[in-house]
Nucleic acid binder design. Structure first.
Length: 860
RNA sequence: GGGCGAUUAGCUCAUUUGGCUAGAGCGCUUCAUUGACGUUGAAGAGGUGAGAGGUUCGAAUCCUCUAUUGCCCACCA
């Protein structure tokens, strides 16, 4: 039996996580402990859905751990808590993987219908589904699995349709021919924020376009000479004196037999390049706009597969790169090149394959973002959403300020179909209809053909908070909307968080969450970004099996602050493992001491240590609560760590070996397990199962956060004085020559008299004795009536140590006196600070006197 | 081109309205040693807080500049 209540001491000295974790998780899950209690104020967190067919990476672990800490804590605080898990169909990501599979089979997407592809990918994902859910369980995520939502679940699809229709009806959806970001490798378009811009070196070529009479020429500058084949004009600034006479005339487009006009447009910067710009409306967003303004028409010369089309035969079917070389060579041959300049400019790349993004003209569905962004801006400025870290608030507002319309269309079968149909006889007539499984429908006697594109996955993900809580259908979980805190990665602030706020406001009239906590990336041990190609990826499941789930949790949370990319640290995971072992052994000690038949009684503090530990634990639990409210996870975990290790193990447990109080000991263990549970759920629950004072079936996960105990403040402070004294003895004896144990003699000191045995134990002394006339070294720092019994010779050898201490004290005294002599300080600093300085100055003065006195004794 | 962040102990990082002698984990030094724990205990060393200037009684913290570094945004051909 794992959870034997027989003598704990028979269990291994070392906590072995792998032996208990799966059983403990099963205990939680089968007991229904992850379900909301239905009582108390609702508290909800939604898990950002990990890829359904992938494995968890260490970033996911951080996410799950932070969320689970909050969920477990608020559950213990008595809130009606739910942690809703999710799984992502990961439209584009999964599609890329699947298309690779297809390629291996020598097939392509064009061999199948949308339905066929969809069901193939479904099966492909289904085979590998569940892995990540098991991994989340291994991390201890206390998620309500019954409420898991897959991003292609019916309710997600239906809500996406409904929202689309709502936006359509409000005139916020439009279909338009626009320049879109198109990856010719993946054959789909992207939203602006999905494009990765990289600064690249390039050449700016100057090309002469001759006037029709061949007498004059106009020189344009371009980085993409191949697109000249699709030029429909040359533009100049209307105020540019150099070209004024040419505006309205036509020039001969070299290489192709075509005349194009010279137009004037304010967009053109006369200072840049030659002041004349070739206009290719089909392949450049600015040119597209200029083309619209001047009715220039569009000539597409790069096809959606990335090959040249509509060009002279020698260029047909070439890639743009190949075409560029040929075009340049041809221009050179015709002596039309007028030089080249090295420049650096930003080039858009596909974030997945790195191909250069081609701006191409395509009919796509867009959302007008301005009204949505403005409403979101207003809500945020009103303070409806709190950002942690706060700097991200500014980032989101800036994003809203410069937002572009959102291209919703993706040419990927693995996604939610866009529910729109086009009149077969009137291409401008589009209607909304969700019968997307039919290629054609009849409405009012007219025939409509369906849109083949699917939604950008972020369109449905952006509605996640109200979908998962069934808010629109006022389901059972509707009370959990808005979500209390949206915890996610800072890297998807714009893609996800910003859009959830906009869509949440639009559809539900309120912000989808009250607080946002953003975590940074987990970098490798040396602060480098993890990537498969670098081979520096840390597998969280390996860490779990090597160190235990709790250890990974503690290690990930330590030394990490909101929004910062921070390195993974194995040494911190090791520290976490050691912490679990510490808890384990505290439990072994306490349970051994109390025996199997112990039944818990209300704790009554008796000794000074009892009062002190009661105060320590009360403070710690209050501190942790506040730190978690501020999302200061690392500090909260650190508080738990030090409370357990230092206060409980090093001081209280040690003290209890001489002054024991069974009820207090039981209460201390009990409290500390509760306190540590959100951070290290497995080991604390494992120990909980061995506690003899709870009935079989009691689960820590469902217990309350520890209540403060009553204690006497004066007694607690007395214990601190004792600690001070013990520390001094330890310090002084460590400086003395030889390794033998020493004896302390005290004179009139009731604190020492009452705790002699305890002091002897904690300071590793031979004896602590009352003496009429003590001799040896006065223990000057703690200022007690106590002496370390050492002979004259040892005392003499110790003299230099005392001198060092004296000089340190004098140094400190100078600092304090300097401060007090400063009139401005006295006048302007807060009174209590001045008071504290005075008090310390007095204490230092007394210490100096005692030390000087000691030195005089040695000298005599 | 614009914006944001980082720079603190050998390493990885904390330090929230400016105020105790700037902390933690790991590492390092010395010592201890067998019944809670060596995944241990005790003691200790180690920081001119990137650099310069300023504001202030007081600055790691606020301001200015510089350097190094990371990230995000960006349709000037």
């Amino acid at each position: 039996m794992y959870f034997s209540r027989e003598n704990f001491m028979k269990l291994p000295k070392t906590y072995e996580p792998s032996q208990y974790e799966p059983g403990i998780y099963a205990l939680w899950e089968t007991s229904g402990s992850f379900k909301p209690s239905g009582q108390g104020e609702p508290y909800s967190i939604i898990m950002p859905p990990p890829n359904a067919n992938g494995n968890l990476h260490v970033g996911h672990s951080l996410m799950a751990v932070l969320e689970d800490i909050l969920v477990r804590f608020y559950r213990m605080k008595g809130r009606d808590t739910i942690y809703i898990p999710g799984a992502d169909h990961a439209g584009f990501e999964t599609w890329v993987v699947y298309e690779r599979e297809l390629q291996k089979q020598g097939k392509s997407r064009f061999d199948f219908s949308r339905e066929q592809l969809y069901s193939q990918v479904w099966n492909f994902v289904d085979e590998q589904r569940g892995n990540m859910e098991l991994q989340l369980r291994a991390l201890g995520a206390s998620a309500s699995w019954n409420n898991l939502v897959f991003t292609l679940d019916e309710k997600v699809v239906n809500t996406a349709y409904a929202t689309f229709k709502k936006l359509w009806d409000e005139g916020l959806i439009y279909r338009g021919e626009r320049i879109v970001n198109y990856c010719t490798t993946h054959q789909t378009s992207f939203a602006d924020i999905e494009v990765e811009h990289k600064n690249e070196k390039a050449k700016l070529y100057k090309i002469a376009y001759p006037t029709l009479d061949k007498i004059d020429e106009i020189v344009v500058a371009t980085t993409r000479p191949e697109t000249m084949l699709g030029d429909t004009a040359v533009a100049v600034n209307p105020n540019d004196e150099r070209y004024k006479h040419l505006v309205g005339t036509r020039v001969q487009l070299p290489l192709v037999d075509r005349e194009i006009p010279i137009v004037a447009d304010d967009y053109v910067d006369a200072e840049y390049g030659t002041g004349a710009v070739k206009i290719t409306p089909a392949h450049d967003p600015n040119d597209f706009e200029i083309g619209k303004r001047h009715n220039l028409g569009e000539l597409q010369v790069i096809d959606f597969d990335g090959k040249m089309i509509n060009v002279p035969p020698q260029y047909m079917g070439l890639t743009p790169e190949e075409a560029r070389k040929k075009v340049l060579a041809a221009l050179d041959a015709q002596e039309l090149l007028r030089g080249e300049t090295d420049i650096e400019h930003a080039v858009g790349h596909c974030y997945k394959c790195g191909s250069v993004i081609q701006p191409l003209v395509k009919d796509q569905w867009f959302i007008s973002m301005r009204p949505l962004a403005d409403a979101a801006t207003e809500a945020i400025e009103r303070g409806d959403v709190r950002f942690v870290p706060e700097s991200k608030k500014k980032a989101v507002l800036q994003y809203y300020a410069g937002i572009h319309d959102w291209n919703l269309s993706r040419q990927i079968p693995w996604g939610i179909p866009i529910p729109a149909f086009q009149n077969t006889t009137d291409p401008s007539d589009w209607i909304f209809d969700d019968r997307v499984d039919q290629e054609q429908i009849e409405v009012n006697g007219k025939t409509y053909t369906r849109e083949e594109d699917t939604f950008d996955t972020w369109f449905s993900s952006g509605q996640w908070p109200f979908i998962t809580t069934d808010y629109l259908s006022t389901g059972e979980l509707a009370k959990y909307y808005p979500i209390n805190v949206m915890e996610t990665g800072a890297d998807i602030l714009y893609q996800w968080v910003a859009r959830m706020i906009m869509l949440g406001l639009k559809v539900t009239g309120q912000v989808p969450f009250k607080e946002v906590y953003l975590h940074g990336l987990v970098l490798d041990e040396h602060g480098q970004k993890m990537s498969k190609s670098k081979g520096n990826v840390i597998n969280p499941m390996e860490a779990v099996s090597e160190f235990g789930s709790d250890a990974l949790r503690m290690g990930l949370v330590a030394a990490r602050s909101a929004g910062q990319n921070q390195a993974f640290s194995t040494s911190k995971v090791v520290a976490g493992r050691n912490f679990c072992n510490k808890l384990w052994n505290i439990a072994r000690f306490v349970e051994d001491k109390l025996g199997d038949s112990y039944r818990m009684q209300p704790p009554m503090p008796e000794s000074l240590a009892d009062h002190w530990i009661a105060r320590e634990l009360s403070q710690a639990s209050a501190n942790i609560e506040q730190l978690l409210a501020d999302y200061r996870f690392a500090e909260a975990a650190e508080t738990v760590y030090h409370t357990v290790w230092s206060s409980v193990a090093d001081w209280y447990v040690e003290a209890s070996k001489k002054q024991d109080n069974h009820d207090m000991l039981a209460w201390v263990l009990d409290s500390v397990l509760r306190m540590a549970h959100p951070f290290a759920p497995f080991v604390t629950e494992t120990i909980w199962q061995t506690l003899p004072w709870y009935e079989e079936g009691s689960l820590l996960i469902r217990e309350n956060w520890p209540q403060p105990a009553t204690f006497d403040e004066l007694a607690a402070a007395e214990f601190e004085r004792l600690q001070l004294f013990i520390s001094e003895v330890r310090f002084v004896t460590s400086e003395l020559p030889g390794n033998h144990k020493h004896e302390v003699q005290y004179h009139s000191d009731s604190l020492l008299a009452d705790n002699a045995e305890l002091i002897q134990h904690l300071a590793r002394l031979k004896a602590v004795l009352y003496t009429e006339q003590p001799s040896g070294l006065r223990l000057a720092v703690s200022g007690r009536e106590a002496w370390l019994a050492i002979d004259q010779k040892t005392l003499y050898e110790h003299q230099t140590n005392l001198e060092v201490r004296l000089s340190e004290a004098k140094q400190r005294q100078r600092t304090l006196t300097g401060r007090l002599d400063n009139e401005s300080y006295i006048a302007k600093a807060p009174a209590e600070l001045v008071e504290a300085t005075k008090k310390e100055a007095e204490e230092v003065q007394q210490l100096i006197e005692r030390l000087e006195n000691e030195l005089t004794v040695i000298g005599s």
